[in-house]
């Protein structure tokens, strides 16, 4: 195979790996958005906190890696419950703006608490995943990336089955569709919300654990969530498959822009391109690729 083509394929493959991470983060956002119409600005903080928690479970408490991940997930889930109960429940029925602002306040609070609790040093996760990359016909993938792709796939499948077949999943979908009707049908909307926050936080925890394996752990991890914003919108706010496709698309676009455009235009178009693409897509499809067009009644 010629080198140019290999270069392209490798860019796309590593873009997919990066995209899985974005997709995972985006799903965390979309779960809450879909059910409650709230963009949770504190999502990045949850990701960062989970990375820290997992790190300290492994290093300070010497837990085996898998157990640590499980515990991190449980802690994140509990955090979701608590957040919903203490912060969001009192805001039920209040204007969306105020609720979004509360999540901004929460993000400020959580970020500084992370600094207080875990310090500001750059930490290195003692990753149990072997560093040796896997080579398949010249294509290179690190084992962390393979695990990341697998977990994303598994998580998405679980979500799919859960929303499609389980009673609670149906209740959640109903709530997302129309809260009032859901209430009338005897769905406990409060319970649904609590669960949604917990599930979303757990998703964030998974992405946090993977980020811990890839990057240095510090407070800066929160900003990764911002780079996932285009992924949410590109796919359309209400759609989980949309978030996944959006995430993958953004990952690939980012890498291709880095590999090709950066040498022509220069100056770091890699991190701007996703936003430009997003802007253009919104010009053509104002509800993202898979978002549903709202039918308004006056």
């Amino acid at each position: 195979m010629n080198a140019g083509l290999m270069f392209f394929i490798q860019l796309v493959i590593s873009g997919i790996a990066l995209g899985c991470l974005y997709a995972l983060i985006a799903v965390g956002f979309v779960l809450i958005l879909k059910a409650t119409d709230i963009l949770n600005f504190a999502q990045g903080e949850v990701i960062m906190l989970s990375a820290f928690i997992c790190y300290f479970l492994v290093t300070t408490f010497h837990l085996p890696f898998l157990l640590a991940i499980l515990l991190t997930g449980i802690i994140a889930g509990l955090m979701g419950f608590v957040t919903e109960r203490l912060v969001l429940r009192p805001m039920l029925g209040e204007p969306v703006f105020a609720v979004v602002m509360v999540t901004i306040g929460l993000s400020i609070f959580l970020r500084s608490m992370a600094g207080i609790l875990f310090g500001h040093n750059n930490l290195v996760f003692p990753s149990p995943i072997p560093k040796e990359a896997v080579r398949m016909g010249g294509i290179v993938l690190s084992q962390t990336e393979i695990w990341l792709m697998l977990s994303t796939f598994v998580l998405i499948t679980v979500f799919f089955i859960f929303f499609k077949y389980s009673r609670m999943g149906l209740a959640m979908r109903g709530t997302a569709d129309d809260q009032d009707v859901a209430l009338l049908m005897g769905i406990s909307v409060k319970q649904v919300f609590a669960l949604i926050w917990a599930v979303s936080f757990i998703t964030a925890a998974v992405s946090g654990v993977f980020l811990a394996n890839i990057m240095v752990i510090n407070l800066g991890l929160t900003f990764v969530a911002i780079s996932a914003f285009p992924a949410i919108i590109l796919g359309g706010l209400e759609s989980i498959p949309g978030a996944i496709i959006g995430g993958l698309a953004i990952g690939i676009i980012e890498n291709l822009a880095g590999g090709y455009l950066d040498q022509i235009i220069g100056g770091g178009v890699k991190d701007v391109t996703p936003f430009v693409v997003l802007f253009l897509v919104l010009m053509i499809r104002p509800y993202g690729l898979f978002g549903k067009k709202e039918i308004e009644r006056v």
Partner: peptide, 24 residues
């Protein structure tokens, strides 16, 4: 004393204000 508390207090204040009065 950790200066993080200042910012944490600020975040908390924003949340409390809005929970107490969503109109700001």
């Amino acid at each position: 004393y950790d200066d993080g508390w200042n910012i944490a207090a600020f975040g908390l204040l924003i949340m409390l204000f809005l929970i107490f009065e969503p109109k700001g």
